[in-house]
Design a protein around this nucleic acid. Structure first.
Length: 150
DNA sequence: GCCAACGTTGGC
DNA sequence: GCCAACGTTGGC
């Protein structure tokens, strides 16, 4: 069982939206590294931080659970969808997603600025300069430390 | 196969 | 809204 961090812009889909629907396909990922994590490494039951990007403030808003194995992202195959990719074909899908389930919302956002204050978190990919990856692994010790901040 | 141009992400 | 970082595309 592994830990992850997954970004979403709350204007598009927030932790409150996930709480309302309970379960949601994490669609629209169009980055190979992020796709590979979902397709090749995620397992049902893994836990993930729900991270609000491009938000006020940016930071970790809660926890969700990986609820399915990876399957082809239907929005890549639908010409009318925002994330349509003509290079993805039903017989050879290029993009994959997993379903996620709401677990809980934090009492407060643990902000990016606050995470940067903790030297123990220096190795986190999230905090690396220039990082733009929207899905990334979280080390168990980092996961535990962040939970302690809430 | 190189690499410049371009587009996107995402913090600020 | 700005802009740094970086992934992708496409001409050669």
């Amino acid at each position: 069982m592994r830990y992850w961090l997954m970004k979403s812009e709350p204007d598009a889909f927030s932790i409150d939206d996930l709480e309302r629907v309970g379960r949601e396909p994490w669609d629209g990922i169009r980055n190979y590294q992020a796709r590979n994590y979902m397709r090749d490494e995620m397992e049902i039951g893994d836990l993930a931080f729900f991270y609000h990007s491009n938000a006020k403030p940016t930071g970790i808003a809660g926890i969700m659970r990986i609820a399915s194995h990876a399957y082809p992202d239907p929005t890549a195959l639908d010409p009318d969808a925002k994330y349509y990719d003509p290079k993805s074909k039903p017989e050879r899908p290029r993009w994959y997603l997993v379903d996620v389930e709401f677990v809980r919302k934090f009492k407060r956002i643990i902000t990016l600025a606050e995470l940067r204050l903790h030297q123990e978190l220096d190795g986190m990919p999230l905090l690396r300069k220039g990082n733009r990856l929207s899905i990334m692994p979280v080390a168990a010790e980092h996961w535990d430390l962040i939970l302690g901040l809430e």
